[in-house]
Computed example of a mutant assay.
Amino acid sequence: MKTINIAIDGPAGAGKSTIAKMVSKKLGYIYVDTGALYRTVALYITENNIADEDIEKSLAKADVSLRFVDGTQRVFLGDRDVSDLIRTPAISMAASRTSAIPAVRAYLFETQQKIARENNIIMDGRDIGTVVLPNADVKIFLTASAEERANRRYKELAEKPDCPTYQEILDDIIKRDYADMHREISPLKQADDAVLVDTTTLNLEESAEAIVKVIESKIG
């Protein structure tokens, strides 16, 4: 039986994960958070102070997995749930850097493709439609202005005591955008056959509905 694969790419802070989760629930598909996988590898490398030249052999000892806990997808490093630890600005920047390392991409590439072969999935990331699932049934490039993405992130973190300023968040997003688009391996870009969806003026529910309409128009 043929599975249906939906690829959603886009820059940091565009709401890919949140929106993809909402759409997967509406359509009954499995959601695969590839960003969480890369962040977890970055956490593993950071916590163990692994030098770039040692990453390939060290990853053989890493145990990164996605699990469903009470119906919610969580990411684990060994037996440790690191779903919250991987969402700090420091790990975000580390993930942007380590995701450009060929050994890291190779480590996670087969994991992602295996999940896609066996399930109807929505997978989001930076290079899903261009590299990981080039033959996806539907490809979407989800974006929003850097200012709006920074504003959303600031609101999300505002209640935390160590919340960075809006300007710090904006600077971080601009820096990540540049790094993701200019990295040598699998840079962030819109696939030629991807549908552009700009959510700058949309709320989450409107964004999810826009994605569902694109998917339904492609696969019926």
Rank of each mutant, 00 (worst) to 15 (best):
R126K: 08
A150N: 05
T88D: 07
P164H: 06
F76W: 08
I86N: 02
D180W: 08
V104L: 08
V138F: 05
P134D: 06
S83T: 15
N120G: 04
G78V: 12
T200Q: 10
V195I: 14
G78R: 12
L202W: 07
F109P: 00
K160D: 13
E159K: 12
M123G: 05
I173T: 10
T88G: 05
Y178H: 15
E156Q: 13
A150P: 04
D84E: 15
E110Q: 15
G78A: 09
L133D: 03
Y166G: 00
D127S: 07
S83G: 09
R152T: 08
P89H: 06
N203F: 11
I121D: 02
R149K: 09
F141Q: 03
I140Q: 07
V195Q: 09
L170D: 02
R105I: 09
I115K: 12
T130M: 02
D162N: 15
A179E: 09
D124E: 14
R176F: 10
T143H: 01
L133Q: 01
R153S: 05
D193E: 09
N120M: 02
S96T: 15
E168P: 04
L85S: 11
E184P: 00
V131T: 00
L85Y: 01
I128A: 09
D79Y: 09
R80Q: 14
M93A: 13
D124N: 04
A191Y: 04
S96D: 06
P161S: 10
N119F: 05
Q113W: 11
T111Q: 14
V75P: 06
C163Y: 01
K160R: 15
I91C: 00
P161E: 12
Y154D: 02
L108H: 04
I115C: 07
L188H: 08
P134N: 05
M93I: 10
E148M: 13
D177G: 13
F109R: 13
D124W: 02
T201H: 14
S186F: 12
A95M: 11
K139E: 00
I169C: 03
I169L: 07
I173L: 12
K175I: 06
M93S: 14
E148V: 09
Y178R: 14
K155E: 06
N120C: 03
T143P: 05
L77H: 05
A94G: 01
L142H: 11
V82W: 06
L188F: 10
D79N: 15
L108N: 04
N135P: 00
P187G: 06
I174N: 14
C163K: 11
T143N: 03
F141W: 07
A94T: 05
K189H: 11
R153M: 07
K155Q: 10
I140C: 06
K160Y: 03
L85F: 02
